[in-house]
């Protein structure tokens, strides 16, 4: 079992607390989405886990050991922090060969990850000629180089084309299915919803949520039902009779808040209201996330849309 354990981690830059008494665990076998607005401390936390930045207090361990105590760490932890980390004048292949040599990884792994990330055909070109998407793929190739049990990716879908986004989704799911520990930061909600099983949400360096994604959404977003009818008056009367309120949209459809589709369907058919469309509104991670951050004064948006 190789988990990432963050315990009471605090990091200050000058007087600003980038990470504030953060405690959470990233477990293997699932994809953990790392969410939070820009500047919430996601990247800082990752750097602290890798021993790159020094914490003011607290500790981060991987598999129970500090990262800096790992011998040949690339065999245990693979990380993508920054797509620009590869020197522009090196070829992708040389960039990976350098990393492989430092951790005694066989040269064959270089070719394997180049194939896996789809940049093998351009591997002998200089990195400065790469698009952002290709550099992201190279960064991911570097993270996978040591076949690590723990994979940590900071905004991996940045700059990827639609094909690349589908690819990374599949890759993350596969890595988790293989029993690896996968932590992926993102600020894209729909993207995160498509691959994450579990969520860790930060705001101002503090932990706001650490729970399964489904639970997070269900706890935050009230169920809603969407209805279309040819008899608006009948609809309103029938709903009012069951203690529900409906609001009409410009396209003529109605939304019933705090309601389950089973109850509304039964109520309307009982009242003989003609139904043209009846659907449960799918609660999204975005709605749940906005609800959470809106309760934090720091991020309160001028208007709430949930």
């Amino acid at each position: 079992m190789t988990s990432i354990d963050v315990r009471n981690l605090t990091k200050e830059y000058g007087t600003r607390r980038a990470v504030d008494d953060l405690t959470f665990t990233v477990r293997p076998g699932r994809v953990t989405g790392f969410l939070g607005p820009n500047g919430a401390g996601k990247s800082t936390t990752m750097r602290l886990v890798l021993g790159l930045d020094r914490p003011a207090s607290g500790a981060a361990t991987v598999g129970g050991r500090p990262y800096t105590a790992l011998t040949e760490p690339l065999r245990h932890v693979g990380a993508l922090l920054d797509a620009d980390a590869a020197h522009g004048s090196r070829t992708a292949r040389d960039h990976l060969r350098v990393l492989a040599a430092s951790n005694r990884l066989p040269a064959s792994r270089v070719d394997e990850v180049l194939e896996e990330t789809g940049i093998a055909p351009v591997a002998r070109r200089r990195v400065r000629t790469y698009s952002l998407g290709m550099r992201q793929r190279l960064g991911i190739a570097a993270a996978l180089l040591g076949d690590p049990e723990v994979v940590m990716l900071d905004e991996p879908s940045n700059g990827l084309d639609p094909e690349g986004i589908i690819w990374i989704r599949g890759l993350l799911r596969r890595l988790a299915a293989e029993g690896r520990t996968v932590l992926v930061s993102s600020h894209l909600m729909n993207e995160t919803a498509s691959f994450a099983d579990h969520l860790v949400v930060l705001g101002r360096g503090r932990l706001l949520a650490d729970l399964p994604m489904r639970e997070f959404i269900d706890a935050r977003v009230q169920p809603r039902v969407r209805v279309r009818t040819s008899d608006a008056t009948g609809l309103k009367a029938a709903l009012a009779g069951h203690g529900h309120q409906a609001e009409q949209h410009e396209d003529g459809s109605w939304t019933v808040r705090h309601a389950r589709v089973e109850d509304i369907g039964r109520a309307l058919s009982g009242a003989g209201v003609p139904i043209l469309e009846l659907a449960a509104s799918e609660a999204t991670l975005e709605q749940a996330y906005l609800d959470l951050t809106a309760t934090e004064a720091e991020f309160a948006a001028p208007h709430r849309e949930v």
Partner: peptide, 17 residues
């Protein structure tokens, strides 16, 4: 050359000592 685009982070992640 290590400080180009924070490449040093990758180098020190590979060799933390």
């Amino acid at each position: 050359s290590e400080f180009h685009g924070n490449g040093i982070r990758l180098s020190l992640a590979a060799v933390p000592r």
